[in-house]
Amino acid sequence: MTPEERKAFEDKVHAYVGREVNAPQKGKDDVNKAMIRHWAEVMGDENPAYTDEEYAAKSSKGGIIAPPSMLQIWSMEGYPMAHNPSQDVQRELHNVFDEHGFAGVLGTNTSAEYYRDLRPGDEVHAHTVIDKISEQKATQRGIGYFIETVTNFTDQNDEAVGKIIFRVLKFTPNDSNDATGGDDSDDGMPEAPTRIASPRGHDNKWWWDAVDEGKVLIQRCKSCQTLRHPPRPMCGECQSIEWDSIESTLDGEVFSFTELHYPKFPGYQYPLVCAVISLGEGTRIISNIVGCEPEDVYIGMKVKGKVEQVDEKTMLPQFYPAD
């Protein structure tokens, strides 16, 4: 898209902001016990306020209520969604995005407020308005725009019963994005992601190759004997580029550490303690502390390393309490 084309496109979509998706509509079914029970049954929800008339009547609820999370359900279009969804303003807006290459759609978040419990016999009327369209954003999924709609729900007396803000991303899918599209294994289950593979370049491939053989090496300057880690081409002391290596005994102590809580990376075991270890040879290495609770790790703790296989394709040094 040229800058002019982009501006024309953005003007076109921003003209939708403030428009109603459709006129206020009464849900096809009023709140009713059957749909409540069907929903609670699938959700495994044993809350007696939803399905046990006797209990509900005696409780402070004074009778059956619908799960508040059903609010939107009372206004759903139903089976036509599968084959012949209604062509409302929202779909028209999505079509404009589709035509300009933003064909991907992803619900990113919702925010619901429930003003009162709904009871069998209540009507639910929904009124949806396109509230906001963001600037163009580069997201993990690809470049796109967030569209925010607001639905206000009212009852048979025109009283507000709730409100839902719904945000979707319309985006151009990244070709490279396969974060959720892993290969199918034989049983059809997608494979769990493994750890990030070690990046092996010209200057450090030899080090990782040794780890694959179960050894942790430390680079040593051939001219002044200074040890260095991580691997790099030149000695910081004498600028020599001649080097060899020695094997570490992996005796060390904790120089510093932290525990990673969030976000959790698939493929890693939690709790996950990352530490800087001072090796007996004098260099430091970043690794994980395993074999004890995170609470038991402390600075100065003596540790002993082992090269271990941590997933199907990764060998890594890991450190255990030494005693």
């Binding site: 409780s59 402070s60 508040p68 990113t108 925010s111 407020e113 429930y114 419990d117 959720t180």
Partner: peptide, 15 residues
């Protein structure tokens, strides 16, 4: 069962 849900905010991640 005698509690009352007033609101739910949800951010969606992996399917």
């Amino acid at each position: 069962p005698e509690s009352t849900v007033k609101g739910i905010d949800i951010k969606l991640g992996a399917p």
